[in-house]
Design a protein around this nucleic acid. Sequence first.
DNA 1: ACTAACCTGTAA
DNA 2: TTACAGGTTAGT
Length: 273
Amino acid sequence: MPELPEVETIRLTLAGHVIGLGIKRVRVYWPPALCGWEGRDLADIVPGQRIETLGRRGKYVLVNLDGGWTLIAHMRMTGRLYYFPEAHAPEKHTHAVFELDWGELQFTDTRKFGRIQAVPTARLGEVPALRRLGPEPLEQSFTVQVLGERLRPKKVKLKAALLDQSVLAGLGNIYVDEALFVAGLHPERPAAALNDAELVKLHAAIQTVLWAGIESRGTSFRDYRDANGEMGSFQAKLNVYGRAGEPCRQCGRPLARLQLGGRTTVFCPECQG
DNA sequence: ACTAACCTGTAA
DNA sequence: TTACAGGTTAGT
């Protein structure tokens, strides 16, 4: 579910509550959601450590602890990280509860795809999932030239390349479709074949769409909530995602749907050349 | 480059 | 009953 803007919003809303708090205990309701390190259980590793900072890499939330460990959380499709200022009865799909000095952090995930992993901070660089990630699209260092270099060697269609986290970190099905619409590019264009003017447009579109998503506190199309349980509002501003058959906001013609790499893709055949 | 797998819930 | 859902990985 959450893509970069949603994960960033989770990070920001969580930071307001948990920075500086110690973890007293972890209650586990569905053990596969938690991954330990070299045979040690996460629930045995983190108690006694204090939450120092919260970071993000692509769609991962990084919880930096002062005892030399970092928690890496990925929500996949339906994962949620909730903060409650007081003890709160776990819900049907709550898999772990982190009891803090004040309040608690709950990890809830209906579809059970999400995971939280404990890793020694000094060895974060060894985690395959993080190693694979491409550049952060909102950082200064992500230039038009970098985008071009990432796309040029790819033999897949533009949509597939942008969904690939090793090309760029953080885009998912919603924001790829939205960025392609804003850039006026057809999702089936070969990724390697964009000219300079098109790269400039795509680069700007990716950043515009991601910043707008963050500004709206994410897209709550269905399941997404921030750490306070609040919905985002970007769903009201979507141009194409979830709008197949509806009129294009730019030209009025009906939006088309396509199946690309197993993912539904919506675009405007008129505006996206 | 596609498909299945991992899961549950909801809508058609 | 079936199709589909914001993700990722492994195996064809």
